[in-house]
Structures are given as structure tokens and as C-alpha cells.
Design a protein around this nucleic acid. Sequence first.
DNA 1: CTTTTTATGCAACAAATTTGCAAATATTAA
DNA 2: TTAATATTTGCAAATTTGTTGCATAAAAAG
Lengths: 139, 139
Amino acid sequence: MIRYSEVKRILKSHNLRITDGRIDILEFILRANKTISIKDLEKEFKSLDRVTLYRTLTSFTENGLLHKIPDDSGHATYGLCHNTCDSKNHYHDHIHFKCNECGTIECLDQNVPAFKVPGYLVKATDVILKGVCKTCVIY
Amino acid sequence: MIRYSEVKRILKSHNLRITDGRIDILEFILRANKTISIKDLEKEFKSLDRVTLYRTLTSFTENGLLHKIPDDSGHATYGLCHNTCDSKNHYHDHIHFKCNECGTIECLDQNVPAFKVPGYLVKATDVILKGVCKTCVIY
DNA sequence: CTTTTTATGCAACAAATTTGCAAATATTAA
DNA sequence: TTAATATTTGCAAATTTGTTGCATAAAAAG
Ligand SMILES: [Mn+2]
Ligand SMILES: [Mn+2]
Ligand SMILES: [Zn+2]
Ligand SMILES: [Zn+2]
């Protein structure tokens, strides 16, 4: 169970102002326990302006609460950062999984391996696995 | 040097109808020897309708001539498939590199490692490295 | 409580992508 | 080669996605 006070604390600790909208949105993201897109927010928060949702995603991302996950669908998807991220340090080393059946993108508890490319300076690595997720596989 | 007859042969072998536009576009992609976006095509082919360019990218991709590379910028980028792909089989196992300086995305000659996730069925893997590319690094 | 800073809503804009349909072109069959 | 058939193209219009400016509301700081 996620409490209001906890949601508020998280916003504060990321230097984000506390507003009703942000509390509701963050609570929704925490509860959902999966990655979200602008579409998900639009569906859930009919009362909030679309522009506000975009801006919320942007400030949450800038302040290390969310990270943007690359996808070839054209729809940006965001995942919760693990508690190590803030506005200054955004560091992610986990891999992602996109399910071909249900479409959800998950952050997995598995780290990316190190890649070395001669002549290139590698600063970040994204790994997106595609296939059938845990809840969609038929045994 | 890429010859007209060769371009035509490639289109045919991927079950794509031969049209002037497609020949020009494919020749351009082959010559460019790097990944391309709709923007690149629009800049190069002023005489072709934007809609046609979109449709060309789509059919080239569906028929295994191009592959779409996931990116968090929202702009789709496409790379040439290696000769093993066709409409039925789209198999890619190379990694990609996106340069933070010049913005180009490259297909690298390095294969993705195998990932295993308990309970999940992994069918494809995308790896996108980010950093500074060969031509942008300062020695 | 007052001032300052930031967030929100609204309208308008801009860019990216899609759709329908008629005309043009390519392929196939005769 | 020509006629029939299938697919592609261009154009106009719609849709979807994301951005910007600005006045107002709300939050944080003093
Ligand atoms: Mn993640
Ligand atoms: Mn590639
Ligand atoms: Zn699934
Ligand atoms: Zn570069």
C-alpha cells in the first residue's frame, strides 16, 4: 500500500513541488508497477490537461524520478528510476523487456553487460528484449 | 559502385515492385552506407511526395530490406538489413550506436549477446549504445 | 501574510504520421 | 503486344503527437 505521505516524500526528495496532480500521477505510476506512456496518463487523468501530463513526464524525468525507454513504436515510454537517481545523476544499468503480445514494457532486475567498441566512447547502454512476457507465455 | 541492375535485383529479391522512386531511394540508402530517417529522404527527394517516402520506408521494412532502430528521440531511424532478411524472416543480431555529438545512429559489426530471463520468452534483442562515435571523438 | 517562484490550463501552433481515393504505373495473363 | 489485374503514387485532408506563450492559480520562501 502506497501512502500519500510517502508519495509526497518522494516528490520532495527529487526537488519537485507538491501539487495535487503530481501526487495523483506519481501514486498511479507507483501502483501500476509497470512502465507508462502519455497515453496511459491521458486515459487515467481526464481532468488534467494534456499539456500538464507532458510537462509532468518531462519534469519527473529531469529530476530523476522516471527514465525514458527507447522504443521503435514512436510512443515514448517511461519507467520508474531506482532510488539512486536524482536531477544530477541519472544512472541506469538494467535491461528492458517489451512483450509482443500485451505490449507492455518492463524494467527487469538484470543489469546490462559492458560493451566495448574500438574507437568509440560508450557512455550509456540500452538493452531491450522482445518476446513474450511472464504473464503472456503459455505453459 | 552500385549499379542500377543491382538495385533492381535487390528490390526483386525482396518481392518489391520496381518503380523509379524505389530505385532512387534504395540506391541512396546503399550509397549513404549509414542509417537514414524520413528527414534524410525528404531532404534528398524533393520531387517525391512525403507520403510516398513514408510508405516506401514501411514496405522496405516489411519486406526485410530495412530494420527500424529503437530510439528515444521519437524519430524513427532505419538501417539496411543484412542480406539474410526477407518478408518472412527478419533477424538481426548486431548492436547499434547513437552518437550524442553528431546524432547519427550506426549499425555496428558486433553481435548482441544472448540474454536469458526466467519465465520470459526472448525472441529478439536490441542493444543501443550511446556516447561519442569514431568520427567525433577527440584524440 | 506577502513576495517570489513554479505549475497549470487554455488556445494556438507545429511536426509527424496516417487515410481515402482517383490517377498513374507495374506486373501478369492472354 | 495488348488487355486485364494488382500495386504504387500524389494530393488533400485528417489525426496523432508534442510544443509554446501567456494569464491565472497554487506552492514555497521569507
Ligand atoms: Mn527501466
Ligand atoms: Mn542495424
Ligand atoms: Zn505480455
Ligand atoms: Zn558522431
